[in-house]
């Protein structure tokens, strides 16, 4: 085999090795990059807006800027610089809106892929959080080695072992809706471990299992 054959062989193997899971983690990276960029961009737009609309801009949130339209801009009475570069400002707002749209696209794709890959687990915890957990542990191939304590510590920046955890699971909607969040984290981790193992071995949705696992958590106040 000459060098070109080696290269072609590696290329073929690469293209057939890319999975839906690979795609999901890359989209998640892009989503996180968009959040960071959006925040950075928002901060500087805000500084720019302060020159023209100080009263408005000083208290404006990211959402206020996203929802702002050019005709509303023209109506804002404020004490800033009188001649404003509204065209430029509007162009910035449009880009901010595009970032927002792209974030939504990412979330939709992540949810879709996560529900395909982990149909049972995605019914137990928000797919976005599940995707973060799976990426952090190094992909679905690591599921067989997962334990409850590992699972509930994932995403905890301090990762203190054995202590109550404040990781991704703690931050899920369902845990946040409970009073005893530590207990709920533990219970949800238990349920998630079961559903993940089922998803690992056969990727079919089992409504009965989901109901049972959700029931476990709903008992907690």
């Amino acid at each position: 085999m000459d060098q070109e054959d080696f290269i072609n062989r590696a290329k073929d193997k690469f293209s057939s090795s890319i999975t839906e899971e690979d795609e999901m983690y890359k989209i998640l990276d892009i989503y996180d990059a968009l959040i960071k960029s959006e925040n950075l961009f928002f901060q500087s737009i805000k500084e720019f807006a302060l020159l023209y609309f100080p009263t408005f801009a000083i208290n404006a949130t990211l959402n206020d800027f996203i929802n702002l339209k050019i005709d509303e801009l023209q109506k804002i009475k404020d004490y800033g610089k009188k001649t404003k570069d509204l065209a430029l400002f509007n162009s910035f707002l449009m880009l901010l809106n595009q970032i927002e749209e792209n974030k939504k696209l990412c979330i939709k794709k992540i949810e879709e892929k996560c529900s395909n890959l982990f149909p049972n687990s995605s019914a137990i915890i928000e797919p976005l959080i599940l995707a973060r957990i799976m990426k952090e542990i190094g992909g679905s191939e690591k599921i067989p080695n997962l334990t409850i304590s590992k699972l509930q510590a994932i995403g905890n920046p301090k990762n203190f072992y054995g202590k109550p955890s404040f990781g991704f699971i703690y931050n899920s909607k369902i845990v946040q809706s409970k009073k005893d969040k530590i207990k709920a984290t533990r219970k949800l981790s238990e349920s998630l471990l079961i559903s993940l193992k089922v998803d690992f071995f056969r990727k079919t949705k089992d409504e009965n299992l989901i109901k049972k696992l959700l029931n476990n958590i709903s008992k907690i106040v």
Binding site: I7, R9, A10, K11, F14
Partner: peptide, 15 residues
């Protein structure tokens, strides 16, 4: 590595 091999003829990538 594939990209590098395309520029250097003595590198044979194996995935």
């Amino acid at each position: 590595l594939i990209n590098l091999a395309e520029k250097r003829k003595n590198i044979y990538p194996i995935f």
